[in-house]
Amino acid sequence: MSMSSSEPFIQEGGCRCGAVRLRITARPLLTMACHCTGCQKMSSSAYSLSAAIPSEAFEVTQGEPVIGGLHGAPKHYFCGHCMTWMFTRPDGIDFFVNLRPTMLDDPSWFVPYMETWTSEKLAWATTPAERSFAALPPDDAYGEMIAGYAATWAAPDRLPANTQS
C-alpha cells in the first residue's frame, strides 16, 4: 500500500546503550549534513547528519540526556552513560530540535536534503544533498528549502518502510 505524505509519521529511537529513548511524531522540516570541523570532531566522522524535527513532535521518553560538546550555544545533548550525541537545541530557536537521525531505530528513510559548511569538508566527503552551501544558508533560503524538502515526501520511494498510523 502506498503511503501518503499526510499520514502520521511516528519513529522511535535511542542512544547506543539504550539508556535514553526518544520519539518523533512528525516528518522533519529539513534534513542536512554539516561538514564543519566542529561537527567532524563531535561525530568522529566526515560530517554530522541532522533532521530538524518540529519541537512539539519531539520527546525524550526514557532517561535523561546531558549537555555535552562545548556546553554553550547551541546545546548538544548526549546520553550520560554511553556519551552518544543524540540531538541539538539551537539557542534562540525553539520551533525545532536537530535530531541525529541515526538515533532512530529505522533511519533508512533519511537522506540529507542540504549540506552546509562545504568550505570545511574533507575533499573526499560527498553526499546526495540537493542544496549545498559553503557556510550556512542565508536566512531567507529556509522557507524555500523546507517546501522543497516537503515535496520529496510525495515520491513513493522516499517514504519510510515502517511509517505507522
Score class of each variant (00 low, 15 high):
E7F: 01
P8A: 12
F9R: 04
I10G: 01
Q11N: 04
R16P: 01
C17M: 11
G18A: 10
R21F: 12
L22E: 06
I24C: 05
T25P: 12
T25Y: 05
T25K: 09
L29S: 02
L30K: 05
T31E: 11
M32V: 07
A33R: 11
C34A: 13
H35Y: 08
C36V: 03
T37H: 11
M42S: 15
S44D: 12
Y47E: 02
S48A: 15
S48C: 07
L49V: 13
A51I: 14
P54M: 14
A57V: 08
A57H: 10
F58K: 12
T61P: 10
P65D: 10
V66A: 04
V66F: 01
G68Y: 09
G69L: 09
G69K: 10
G69Y: 10
G72H: 05
P74Q: 13
Y77G: 12
G80Y: 02
C82N: 08
M83G: 04
F87Q: 00
R89I: 15
R89M: 15
D91P: 03
I93S: 08
I93C: 03
D94P: 04
F95W: 09
F95V: 03
R100Q: 10
M103R: 08
L104M: 08
L104F: 10
L104S: 07
L104A: 11
D105V: 00
F110S: 09
P112Y: 07
P112T: 05
P112M: 06
P112E: 07
S119G: 04
K121L: 00
K121V: 00
A125V: 06
T126C: 03
T127S: 03
T127E: 00
P128W: 00
E130T: 04
S132R: 13
A134N: 03
L136W: 00
P137S: 02
P137Q: 01
D139W: 00
A141S: 13
M145H: 02
I146Y: 08
A147G: 01
Y149M: 01
A151R: 12
A151D: 06
A154M: 01
